[in-house]
């Protein structure tokens, strides 16, 4: 069973990124559960977790949101690579936060970045995931926590 604190650590890692990097806090939408593999947006940053918990946590965002985020960060390069870079950094932040809070119990991988509509995210069959919408400005991304 996932603890509230664990979920909060991942959520805060994500919202913190927006607040610090773009000086505009993100809010979280209505969270829900999902069985099977949730759909993803164009860009996805994934961290794998093993140890006391097993599974994946990923941040998936649409291109439009990343573009605005980059603008807010005063970037003017909106290439595919930069987008990948950005979701990677978000995942990196989530991973750092998690290491700080659960470093003793979890083994947390270096983030990897996937792009495209149907990327292969390894997921345990029958695993229920927490989907937490991350709303920022008019855009919406998803934080998916899929741990057992």
């Amino acid at each position: 069973m996932l603890y509230e604190q664990e979920l909060k650590t991942f959520v805060e890692g994500t919202t913190n990124f927006f607040e610090v990097a773009a000086q505009q806090p993100a809010s979280i939408g209505s969270p829900y559960l999902m069985e099977g593999t949730p759909s993803v947006h164009e860009y996805t940053g994934v961290i794998n977790i093993s140890g006391k918990r097993e599974g994946v946590v990923y941040f998936t965002a649409p291109k439009a949101m990343l573009t605005v985020l980059l603008m807010k960060m005063q970037e003017n390069d909106f290439s595919h690579e930069t987008m990948r870079d950005l979701v990677g950094e978000v995942a990196n932040t989530i991973s750092g936060n998690a290491r700080r809070d659960f470093g003793r119990d979890f083994v947390i991988s270096v983030p990897s970045v996937l792009s495209g509509e149907k990327p292969a995210i390894p997921q345990k069959p029958g695993q229920r995931s927490f989907i937490i919408p991350i709303n920022w400005r008019s855009h919406s991304a998803k934080l998916v926590v899929s741990l057992s």
Binding site: Y3, E4, S27, I28, P31, Y32, R128, F130, I132, N135
Partner: peptide, 18 residues
């Protein structure tokens, strides 16, 4: 109300399903 208020709810729901 914000999404954060719903986090415990969804956790509890997950627990209930389990």
């Amino acid at each position: 109300l914000t999404g954060s208020d719903f986090l415990p709810l969804v956790l509890k729901l997950d627990e209930l399903l389990a």
